[in-house]
Amino acid sequence: MKSKALFFSCVFLFLAGYCQAQVAYGAKDTIKVATTNYNGEIIPWVVIGEVTVVDRRTFKSQEDYDKYRRLRYNVLKVLPYARFAGQRYRQLERDLALTNDKRKQKQLIKSCDKEIKDLFNDKIKNLTISQGEILIKLVDRETGNSSYQLVKDLKGNVSAFVVQSVAKIFGHDLRNKYDVDQEMDIEGIIHSAGYYTYQ
Score class of each variant (00 low, 15 high):
L96Q: 11
V47H: 05
Y73E: 11
I186M: 09
V180R: 13
Q199A: 09
S146W: 01
G40P: 00
R175T: 05
M1S: 13
R103D: 13
E93A: 07
P44D: 09
E50T: 15
K32E: 10
D140P: 05
Q149I: 05
Y68N: 08
D101H: 03
A82I: 10
R57I: 10
K2D: 08
D173L: 07
Q87H: 07
C10N: 11
S61G: 11
S165I: 04
E115Q: 13
L71M: 14
P44C: 09
F170V: 13
Y81F: 13
G132Q: 10
E183Y: 02
R70H: 00
N145S: 14
F59G: 09
G26E: 02
K104H: 07
K32N: 05
A16N: 00
K123N: 05
S111C: 07
T128P: 03
L13A: 07
F170T: 14
F170N: 15
M184Q: 15
Q199V: 12
V78F: 04
D122I: 14
E183R: 01
D29S: 10
S147G: 05
G132P: 04
E115H: 09
G49I: 03
L119V: 12
R88G: 01
C10D: 02
Y89A: 05
D66V: 07
G26C: 07
N37K: 12
R69D: 14
T30Q: 12
T143L: 01
P44S: 08
S3T: 07
A21K: 10
T52F: 02
Q20V: 15
Y195N: 06
M184L: 15
H172D: 03
D181N: 15
A167Q: 04
V51N: 06
D140T: 05
K125G: 00
Y196H: 04
Q87A: 12
K152R: 01
I31W: 02
L15Q: 06
N145V: 07
H191V: 15
Y81G: 14
A21S: 12
Y81R: 09
M1E: 14
A160Q: 03
D173I: 08
E183W: 00
Y196E: 09
L127T: 01
E63M: 09
A5W: 00
V158H: 10
V163L: 07
L96R: 14
Y65Q: 12
Q182R: 13
K67T: 13
V33Y: 00
V46L: 04
Q20S: 15
D113R: 08
Q20Y: 14
Y196K: 08
S159C: 11
L174I: 11
Q199W: 09
N176W: 13
I42D: 12
